[in-house]
Structures are given as C-alpha cells and as structure tokens.
C-alpha cells in the first residue's frame, strides 16, 4: 500500500512537472488559444447572459457571427441584434424590419456589444508576453483587424489553469478605457470557466457593469440563423 502511494505521488510530481515545462514552452499565441478554450466551450454555442436587470440569449458561431435576443427587460423584447464581423443589425418590432445600425451602439451600462459578441481573442489579436511571474503571464494583445471594440488589451492569465484573471482594455494610444476582472469560476458546459466579468470604466470608477453567464451549452446552428433577413422570427 505504501509503495502504491509513493508511486502515485511520484507520478503526480512527474506529470505536474511536465505540465509546467510544457506551459513554459508555450508561445503567447498558444496561451491565448488556451484562454479562449476556457472562455468558449466550442466553435458554436449558446449562452444566457445577465447584465444588471437585462437578460440576453446569445448564439455564437466562430468569432464573427453573434445573434443576441433580449429576454429581459420586457420593453426590449423582440429587439434582436445580429453581428456579422463588423456589421450589425437590430430588429425593430414596430417597423417589423431589421435595421442596419452602427456597431458603436452601447449594449447596456459599461458593457459594449463586443463584450458578449466577440468572446475569442485569438485570431482578432496578436499576443506578446509582457510580464511573467511564477503563477501568471501578462499578455499584451494588439488588434490585427479594424472595427474591434478594443484596440489593445492587457490580460493576466493563471499559468496552471489558463484562466483569465483580469484584463485592461486600452485605446490605440494605450490609454486605459476599462478594467475587467474574471470571477465566478465554476463547472459549466463541461469544464471550469469564468461566469462573471466585472467591467469598470477607467475614467469613472462608479461606472461599472457585471456580465454574468447564467447558462451555456454547445450547439450548432444552421447558417440561415445568422441572416439579417431572418431577424425577428
């Protein structure tokens, strides 16, 4: 029995050591992909998100297709939003039509459309390791395409789990716009993921919003689901 325990402990040490070595060998782009895997269960999925008193049903496919249905408050029900890359449409129930709108429009509070529509950083940003400690990396992300909500992001990642811990959203001139912390880590859609994102304005600390992921499931959607002409169904 004692020999068995010793063997198991030795195996654990070897495995954890190899994991740490493997992590140390990872480049920033690979780390970013691992972080995205923590935040996104699959290429295509669905989640229910609460921001203050507003609840959204969010359908995501890849990094460029997002359909946001407003469940609460009652006044905004039916005002579905579709984001395809840098393009955005909003369904106006009174007009019974999808209206092309600017991506600049604010979702609610400090939360921008991009905070729930572009959940993957990899592919949108190039990454570099700005700082490394025994437990974490600080990555500096720079947008590789135009039209993204944030041009630069500084994100801290826990080495052991690839969990994002905090982020700082910056302008093109590296001026802080917002600060965010990731929390509420729990098992959802098959693994431990952050379910809370607290966003605070860098200018006015009283301006803050909390994005809470209430439910998440892997799901595939027909391509017509993300067609502007189908909004409002």
């Amino acid at each position: 029995m004692r020999a068995l325990i010793v063997s198991v402990l030795a195996l654990v040490e070897v495995l954890s050591g190899s994991a740490a070595r493997a992590a140390a060998e990872l480049g920033p782009e690979e780390i970013l992909k691992r972080v995205d895997e923590v935040r996104n269960p699959s290429e295509s999925y669905r989640m229910q998100v609460r921001i203050s008193d507003s609840v959204f049903d969010v359908l995501l496919e890849g990094n460029s297709k997002t359909l946001v249905r407003t469940l609460e408050p009652a006044r905004d029900q039916g005002r579905d939003m579709l984001m395809l890359g840098e393009e955005m449409w909003a369904y106006i129930p009174n007009l019974k039509r999808a209206v092309r709108v600017s991506l600049s429009q604010k979702l609610t509070g400090q939360a921008a459309n991009g905070d729930i529509s572009r959940m993957r950083w990899s592919g949108d940003y190039s990454a570099g390791v700005e700082k490394e400690t025994a437990d974490s990396w600080t990555l500096f992300l720079t947008a590789t395409k135009k039209g993204l909500t944030y041009e630069k992001i500084r994100v801290t990642v826990e080495k052991k789990t690839f969990h994002p811990i905090k982020a700082e959203y910056l302008t093109g001139a590296s001026k802080p716009l917002k600060r965010a912390t990731f929390g509420g880590f729990k098992r959802i859609a098959g693994r431990i993921r952050p379910t809370e994102l607290s966003i605070q304005s860098a200018v006015n600390q009283n301006d803050q919003s909390k994005i809470i992921v209430e439910a998440m499931e892997k799901k595939t959607f027909p391509s017509s689901q993300f067609n502007p002409q189908r909004l409002g169904q």
């Binding site: 840098e86 600017s102 600049s104 039209g147």
Partner: peptide, 12 residues
Amino acid sequence: ATQSFGQDWILR
C-alpha cells in the same frame, strides 16, 4: 442598400 463605414457611419 446599406453600407457601413467604420463603427460610426452607415449609408442607406
């Protein structure tokens, strides 16, 4: 037709 320009402008 509609066409967006950047994040702020839309032509209809």
